[in-house]
């Protein structure tokens, strides 16, 4: 089935977002790009099942996610090792200053259970609604909401963002207050 120019253009435009989601799933940019490649091939092969005018990005994210978990099932142990190495590499980088560092944040993100991390990314970074995220993850909307909420709680713990230490650091307090106003 020929693919329309508009669809091809939208597909191309989706690649940066697919890569970002893939990095968040795999923890490695190399594996992420392999995953995106696989996703594009799969998508192309079954474009006839895609209804033009519906949400292409959600459709592509679903394919990518399914591909990722089928790889995880196949590779098992190997994937775990890759993630361990990634975590260790991040942990060896010293944090700078007393405020929340992006490196600290990445590391904390990496420590979240995968289902919580992906829910948080889809809703908090990819810009999907809870409903779309539920569709992508093939679960109930309430499940996504609770995963996002638990992810935030967990990050708050991992990063030590609780009220006392959070408010006590004048630098981060300033930064945060400014960012929210």
């Amino acid at each position: 089935m020929p693919v329309s120019d508009a669809l091809r253009r939208d597909l191309l435009a989706s690649i940066p977002n697919l890569r970002a989601f893939a990095v968040s799933l795999t923890g490695s940019s190399e594996r992420a790009d392999d995953l995106v490649q696989e996703t594009l091939m799969k998508a192309w092969a079954k474009f006839d099942t895609f209804q033009e005018g519906t949400n292409l990005r959600a459709w592509l994210f679903t394919i990518l996610r399914n591909e990722f978990y089928s790889q995880v099932r196949k590779r098992g142990r190997e994937v775990e090792d890759a993630e361990g190495t990634y975590a260790a590499r991040l942990a060896s980088q010293p944090a700078q200053g007393g405020h929340m560092d992006m490196r600290d944040f990445r590391e904390a993100l990496n420590h979240l259970p995968p289902d919580q991390r992906e829910a948080l990314i889809l809703v908090g970074a990819s810009g999907f609604s809870y409903e779309e995220a539920a569709e992508i993850c093939q679960c109930a909307v309430g499940t996504i909401k609770s995963r996002v909420s638990r992810a935030r709680t967990r990050l708050t713990d991992l990063l030590g963002l609780e009220g006392e230490s959070y408010g006590a650091d004048p630098v981060s307090t300033t930064v945060i207050t400014r960012s929210l106003t």
Binding site: F105, R106, L161
Partner: peptide, 12 residues
């Protein structure tokens, strides 16, 4: 809000 900001920064 701070978590959201960091999350988007990492993603972007």
């Amino acid at each position: 809000g701070e978590i959201g900001k960091q999350l988007r920064a990492v993603y972007e």
